[in-house]
Simulated assay, not measured.
Amino acid sequence: MALDVLFEDNHVLVVNKPAGLLVHGDETGDITLADLAKEYIKDKYNKPGNVFVGVVHRLDRPVSGVVLLAKTSKALTRLNELFRSKKTRKIYWAVVQNKPVQESGALVHWLVKDASKNVTKAFAKENPAGARSELNYKLLASQQGKFLLEVNPITGRPHQIRVQLASMRCTIAGDLKYGAANPLPDKSIALHARELHFEHPTLKTTITVSAPLPDNPIWKPFV
């Protein structure tokens, strides 16, 4: 599988992850984005031995879009701190089954993850077992009975966008885990990490990277 590189220099590698590919290894043992990135660097720069690739953040397996990787340990440390301190900006696009009652707004929930089932539940009121989670959304377009939302997550929780949108009856197309009526043919869900804005770990300039939409019928009305 060829790596779709969006931006690269000596310190960072930004790629467009296809749906279905793991970012980091799990119990399946399937090939990961990190594996592909290491092979890409080894081949491109003819590097012998082990190659360093640091995973800065993750996308769920059925989600596509921008993923930032670090090529040095110094870059990884600095980028991790940016994410921890919420100094990055992430923009997602989602195709949902229902039109939101309000075309734009903010959602705040306390999310509790059931690790045994890999499912997250959203609570509207403070839950001592949950993590406060916030996102902003707005309706961008509607076509063929589907609705395109732009989502800006303020926090980064497991399945956050998926469960928070589902909580307002805007389940993401194909997301059976959170109430979608039907799967998508390729088993993806219609959630795409569209843009990432971050401070470069050494240059201190703002880098903005955008990922093209997947070549998938669910996205074609919005291209």
Rank of each mutant, 00 (worst) to 15 (best):
D4M: 03
V5K: 12
V5T: 09
V5D: 12
L6Q: 07
N10A: 06
N10F: 00
H11A: 05
V14H: 10
A19K: 06
L22Y: 02
V23H: 10
H24L: 06
H24S: 13
H24N: 14
H24F: 00
H24K: 04
T28F: 04
G29T: 09
G29F: 12
D30Y: 12
D30V: 00
T32Y: 06
L33G: 01
A34V: 07
D35E: 07
L36P: 02
K42W: 02
D43V: 00
Y45S: 09
P48N: 15
G49M: 12
N50F: 09
V55H: 05
V56I: 15
R58K: 08
P62I: 03
V63H: 04
S64R: 03
V67F: 04
K71L: 13
K71W: 00
S73T: 13
A75S: 06
L76D: 07
T77H: 13
L79G: 08
N80M: 05
R84G: 13
T88I: 14
K90G: 07
I91T: 15
Y92K: 08
Y92N: 05
W93I: 01
V95L: 13
N98H: 14
P100N: 11
V101L: 14
E103D: 15
G105E: 10
G105I: 01
W110H: 15
L111E: 09
K113M: 04
D114Y: 07
D114I: 00
S116W: 08
K117E: 15
K117H: 12
K121S: 11
F123C: 09
A124G: 15
K125Q: 15
K125G: 05
P128V: 07
G130W: 00
A131R: 11
Y137A: 05
Y137E: 08
L140M: 12
L140K: 08
A141N: 14
S142C: 05
Q144P: 02
Q144H: 13
K146C: 09
K146D: 10
L149Q: 08
L149Y: 06
E150D: 10
N152G: 02
T155F: 05
G156S: 14
G156T: 04
R157M: 04
P158H: 11
H159M: 04
V163M: 08
L165W: 06
S167P: 11
S167V: 10
M168K: 15
C170N: 11
G174W: 09
G174N: 08
D175T: 01
D175I: 03
K177P: 05
Y178C: 10
G179Q: 12
D186T: 02
K187Q: 15
L191D: 06
H192Y: 07
H192R: 01
H192S: 01
R194C: 11
R194I: 01
L196Y: 04
L196T: 02
H197M: 09
H197G: 02
F198V: 03
F198K: 07
E199W: 02
P201K: 03
L203A: 15
K204C: 08
K204M: 12
K204D: 14
T206E: 15
T206I: 06
I207K: 11
L213Q: 07
D215V: 00
N216I: 02
I218L: 13
K220V: 00
P221A: 13
P221D: 10
P221V: 04
P221F: 04
V223Y: 13
